[in-house]
Simulated assay, not measured.
Amino acid sequence: MYSFKNDYSEGAHPRILNALFESNLVQEDGYGEDRFTLEAKELIKQKLSNSNVDIHLLSGGTQTNLTAISAFLRPHEAAISVSTGHIFTHETGAIEATGHKIISVEGENGKLTVEHVKKVLESHPDEHMVKPKLVYISNSTEIGTIYQKEELIQLRQLCDEEKLILFMDGARLGSALCSSECDLKLSDLPSLLDAFYIGGTKNGALLGEALVICNDALKEDFRFHMKQKGALLAKGRLLGIQFRELFKDDLYFDLAIHANSMAEKLRDEISKAGFSFLTHSPSNQVFPIFPNAFIEKLQQKYAFHLWEKIDNDSSAIRLVTSWATKEDEVLAFIEDVKKGF
């Protein structure tokens, strides 16, 4: 059985494993003070074309979200998220456990707009309610959609006017930036966001996310917050080595391009076979709508998530491709869809 469940079913790209092996007996300082981590941070800054950002390496997306958001907010402040946002649906109340409410809105195609944020602000006018302070977005979103540059510019302008923090979850940032429909570059992000992270776990690393703090007001004492949340790893080198390998050339982007190209094959051929989709998702997540009986047949050969019931006879499933997805398996899936095996 071949899995299209997620983009972290495999281990890591061989270059990363080789780099970890070759450096295994090299002695280095701990807690991210090693030369591998320092080199990785400089490489990322070069890719960002910005030397003024602070970069911190953490182990996973949920840990990054809860550490960053709880550090950025005061006790009475809250985050705004779409109802499909990862911090609202898939993190076991991690943000709330730090004492901060998440205000959810339905959003539009998995995205927040200026109008959504304005409505939240209007409905939280005074000190009898939590104060909306942080705008949480994901790129790509939980349903595979992506933000365009103009959308981020509009959110940035509103956040500046209302003194809000704009924070981007970048667990699948590589896929978003490498989408054929994306007009953003990695180097655009520091001027548009207060903070964001570059996901490694879902793009070829064993584990790891690179948090980029752009707003100077959010930088102070962040390592204290990391230590308190268990995010300051003694063997921080393990993260540094991986991100150094991903960013010393274009490996990070090459892996995302492969994941996207596999997803594009699935989208194109499933569409040609006459099926529709839950959403237009130009990234590495695909949400086709199939008859329930056909889904049961596909489950005999493939693993994937049942995403949403459409009606009594059909449902949307989620197919996720990765840096390691085999083209032969994609073609086999397509053939099974075509023949309705």
Rank of each mutant, 00 (worst) to 15 (best):
R223D: 10
E269V: 01
S191V: 07
R267L: 04
I257A: 14
I257C: 10
F247S: 03
F290I: 05
N292V: 05
A234W: 09
F304D: 03
L192E: 11
R237C: 11
K219N: 07
D250C: 08
L238T: 07
L255K: 10
R267T: 10
D221S: 12
H305E: 03
A195H: 00
P190D: 02
L232D: 10
E269N: 14
N292T: 08
H280W: 14
I213G: 00
R267N: 03
A195L: 10
N203W: 10
E245V: 11
F243D: 01
L192D: 15
N260I: 03
C214M: 00
A293H: 14
R237K: 15
L238D: 10
L266D: 01
A259Y: 04
D194W: 08
E296R: 15
G230E: 15
K202I: 12
A195Q: 13
S276Q: 12
A234I: 13
P282V: 08
F253A: 14
T279M: 03
A293I: 12
A293K: 15
F294P: 09
Q300V: 09
L233D: 12
Y252M: 03
A263H: 06
S191E: 15
G208A: 11
E296S: 12
L189E: 11
G199Q: 00
N284T: 11
R244V: 07
P190G: 11
I295N: 07
R223I: 14
E220Y: 01
F224L: 14
P288M: 11
I257E: 09
L255H: 13
T201L: 13
G230L: 10
I198H: 00
G199L: 01
L278V: 04
N284Y: 15
I241Y: 04
I295W: 04
S187K: 02
Y302F: 14
L232A: 12
K219P: 08
I257H: 09
N203Y: 09
L211C: 03
F287H: 02
L251P: 10
I289L: 09
M226K: 07
D268G: 12
L192F: 04
F253L: 08
D249S: 12
S283Y: 09
N215I: 01
M226R: 12
F196K: 08
F287A: 00
G199E: 05
L211I: 05
K227F: 12
R237Q: 05
E245M: 05
Q285A: 11
K229N: 14
